[in-house]
Design a protein around this nucleic acid. Structure first.
Lengths: 343, 343
DNA sequence: CCTGGCACTCGATCTCAGTGAGTGCCAACT
DNA sequence: AGTTGGCACTCACTGAGATCGAGTGCCAGG
């Protein structure tokens, strides 16, 4: 079946181009891979593949290079899951097992991922929105200053200082605390916010004691829960790998470096996490930013069970080792998920 | 006085080289600057300057380029303080005034600094060690889980969870809390650590109730105070400016990118903050890392009065606009200091 | 001590032919 | 129909001059 062989040729082209970084010609192809046909036949196949838009030649009389469409075909239909080497597995374990808290897990993950893939790694901190409230605490630093502490099921602790215009009696504080606990504990973020807002008395009733405190504390809590900084926090690592881009510098690295500092952009780039097991690959111009047309993103969701808490992945040139990268991303995501489950 | 003119020539060479990025010759020099002498004279001066090691030529029959020593002379004796434009001052105000908390101040500063200087900016989070303890709080989440909260004079809040093997009575908790407050409140970090450690009963006396809790809590507090992550945290911004390096890529940018992710390295690079008003310039090979021989660091301490809390600065190529950069660094440090004072 | 003049150096740029990897096409073979 | 060997063609890349010119060092005269 010549159709099968054409795909084999495409796969071979992608693999060779990724490893050599040079346009690949028909002769080198038959030599390096065990296709049992002559260069001329391969040339015919390549002509067809080019016709169909999977490969192109930078200039006449040069080898072929995969297009975005070619890479897409490659990752969709031509890759087989490449298991990690045991050395890599060991590296993952030893790297992540020492983590002491959530931040540490994320930071280690980003480091690990960038080293495994030799690309720029991006790990989103677990999102608050799908976690639940474990505990709420009020501490009166002075009668007019309250420390509001919010502890979430992810282990994240947020705190806010609230200043009151008038002192709050200990009794009122205790009442408020118990009401908060009753409403919020165990709830998911969204529900907790709704419940807390309902606690705030309507303006008319504002005369009752502690009304100001209730409003301010609820406000602080809600703000902490939907805090954008927490939702949007990401860790980035391995930027030094950008130095390997060598050619195409201003065109590729500069916009990428800029994107790496814009966490909002980064998150958009990582995209919505597919279901936890799926690794998403976005190739070149498929992404949302024109400037990053020559970069690909390999990402996946991670976190307990089906409710993936956050996203992690890597950003690299379209010319990358997709099978290896996908395997690494998947493995790290799984391992991180397991660690979060245990904690 | 020909000595004076030689220095003027050096200054002119530095200025021209910084702006054009090309070796500067005698003819261009007399044309662009108002030195009232002929190119031949300038050539003689340049010969002397080269003899003395202030400048060098990349190859025969090319213009001259400043050496590290030349830049050093330039920043030490040839720069006049360049006041910021009012536009820049306005930019600083509007950029920093909206900050809501300490983290925000640091993040805004780093952004601002990188934009002002068009270099990579580095801002150290204020160090704990010279701040004082404002408050300590214990919250019993359950009888066996304590949340330890530490609030410092810088506004930083650290919290730790402590797990106990046996429940702690409310009375013991209250006693412990008041003892902690008595010992720590208002103390500088170092003193507080010493005082707290003294609270821990010797092993022999460990039988008394709450001994385990005291030990664990004190341990957690001390750990939080001397937490390396807090001491070593830095914010980095403007890495996209590295793309302007263009030439000399692998040699200069790669090690720098690596350094930017090693916060410990970065801090060493920033160096001990000189007294708050002084801007420190470290040129090329003067720094502690060989790989960064072609980069300079402009840094200064910031923070209230003489006890500078932390360091901020920029990292860039030795070929940079020192006067402008120094002015920007100084201005940002002053402004940040003022904001921290107000808070 | 400054200046104009002058010979010299040498990196940068251009041209140009040679090379070779790679292609497309065609006729012959299975 | 699909595969193969042959063959002419294209064109980026390379290296060898040749040329250019910015910049220098030196020297003799002001």
């Amino acid at each position: 079946m010549q159709e099968d062989r054409r795909l084999a040729v495409l796969r071979a082209i992608v693999e060779d181009y990724v490893s050599t970084e040079e346009p690949v010609g028909s002769k080198a192809l038959v030599e390096r891979h065990g296709l049992g046909v002559s260069p001329a036949t391969v040339r015919n196949d390549m002509a067809v593949l080019e016709e169909e838009g999977y490969i192109t030649q930078p200039h006449t009389s040069a080898g072929r290079v995969p297009t975005d469409k070619g890479y897409r075909m490659f990752v969709d239909r031509l890759t087989t899951v490449k298991p990690l080497s045991s050395a890599e597995k060991r590296a993952i374990s030893s790297f992540l097992d020492g983590a002491v808290d959530l931040d540490d897990v994320v930071q280690r993950s980003v480091r690990l991922l960038s080293q495994l893939t030799r690309q720029v790694a991006v790990v989103q901190y677990p999102t608050l929105s799908s976690s639940t409230v474990r505990h709420v605490e009020l501490v009166a630093l002075t009668p007019e200053r309250l420390l509001v502490v919010l502890i979430l099921s992810t282990g994240r602790v947020e705190q806010r200082l609230v200043e009151l215009s008038s002192p709050l009696a200990d009794d009122d504080l205790a009442t408020l605390r118990s009401r908060l606990l009753l409403v919020a504990t165990g709830q998911r973020i969204a529900d907790a916010v709704a419940g807390l807002r309902a606690l705030v008395p309507a303006d008319d009733a504002a005369a009752q004691p502690g009304a100001e405190a209730t409003g301010a504390v609820v406000e602080a809590l809600c703000e902490a829960m939907s805090d954008h900084r927490s939702d949007h926090r990401v860790a980035v690592g391995g930027a030094a790998n950008l130095a390997r881009y060598g050619d195409s510098f201003d065109s590729a690295v500069r916009p990428l470096l800029e994107a790496l500092e814009e966490h909002v952009v980064l998150l958009k780039l990582l995209g919505e996490a597919g279901s936890s097991g799926m690794v998403t690959v976005r190739i070149g111009a498929e992404g949302p930013y024109e400037e990053l047309a020559s970069t690909s993103v390999v990402s996946t969701g991670y976190g307990p069970e089906d409710q993936s808490l956050a996203t992690l992945g890597i950003v690299g040139p379209t010319r990358m080792d997709y099978p290896g990268t996908m395997a690494a991303v998947r493995a790290v995501a799984r391992y991180v998920t397991r660690i979060l489950d245990e904690a």
